[in-house]
Simulated assay, not measured.
Amino acid sequence: MNSEFSKALWDDSDPAYAPFLKTRKGKYYYWVPSKRYIHQGWSIKSYRLEGHPGDGRDTERAAECRRLTRELVQWWEGENTPRIQAGTWGWLIQRYIHDDISSIHDVRPYTRKTYIKILSKASVVNFESFWIPKLLLA
């Protein structure tokens, strides 16, 4: 178990514990992991969370932060291998879903949730092993 985080990460004993929670522009919430995880290959640079300050959904956001952080820690400790390699379709799908500048953040929350659900089902096919043709990356 990673000692960097509170035990509440694993047992949900503190419903307000929200690791890596950040606000941007004072009205958007994001889960943003430390750069050390990004530099080591974690594919999610940031993840926009539902809601806005004062909406009363702080515990929901905290639970989502804990869920994402548990995934990150499991990945970091090698429990969820293999890691997605850059340049594959799986990597591109993850970037589309999680990147700050992705157009997925421009659609309504219900539409975004539907897109993510569909793309998650598509990832059942082992996209991690399919490389994107160099012509499409240029």
Rank of each mutant, 00 (worst) to 15 (best):
S3D: 13
I132Y: 04
R112W: 11
L137G: 02
Y110P: 00
K7I: 04
S13G: 15
V124Q: 06
A86K: 15
S34T: 03
D14L: 10
W91Q: 04
S3Y: 09
G78E: 11
L49N: 06
L9F: 09
Y30A: 01
S46C: 13
S43V: 15
T23Q: 13
E79R: 14
K27Q: 13
P109R: 05
S13Y: 03
S34M: 03
Q94S: 10
K35V: 08
E4A: 14
I118N: 03
G51K: 10
G78L: 06
G56W: 10
Y47N: 08
V32T: 14
A122T: 04
L137R: 14
P53G: 05
P19F: 07
R95E: 12
Y96K: 04
K45H: 12
M1A: 13
D106V: 03
E71D: 13
G90Q: 07
E71A: 05
K27I: 06
H52V: 13
V73A: 08
C65A: 02
R108Y: 03
V73N: 02
Y28W: 14
Y47C: 12
V125R: 03
E79A: 11
D14C: 05
G54C: 08
Y37L: 12
H105M: 01
W131L: 14
D58V: 01
E4L: 13
P109A: 01
I93W: 00
G26F: 10
I93L: 07
T59V: 05
R24H: 13
S123T: 04
R24T: 00
A63D: 10
H39Y: 05
L72Y: 01
Y29L: 06
K25E: 14
Q85P: 03
T81H: 12
W89G: 02
T88V: 09
L68E: 01
F127I: 02
R83A: 15
L135W: 05
P15T: 08
I84H: 05
Y28F: 14
A8E: 04
P19C: 06
A18R: 07
I97V: 15
A63Y: 00
A86Y: 13
P53E: 06
Y17E: 01
G90M: 09
N2I: 11
A62Q: 03
T23S: 15
P109T: 08
R67P: 00
S34R: 11
S6F: 04
L21T: 02
S43T: 14
L137Y: 00
L135E: 14
E77P: 08
Q94F: 02
S3C: 05
L49T: 08
K121V: 03
T111V: 13
C65K: 06
H105G: 04
D106A: 14
P133H: 06
P33V: 07
K27H: 14
T69I: 12
K134P: 02
K25I: 01
E4G: 06
G51F: 11
Q74F: 10
S102P: 09
I116W: 06
Y110G: 00
K134S: 10
I118A: 09
K7A: 09
N126K: 13
I97T: 07
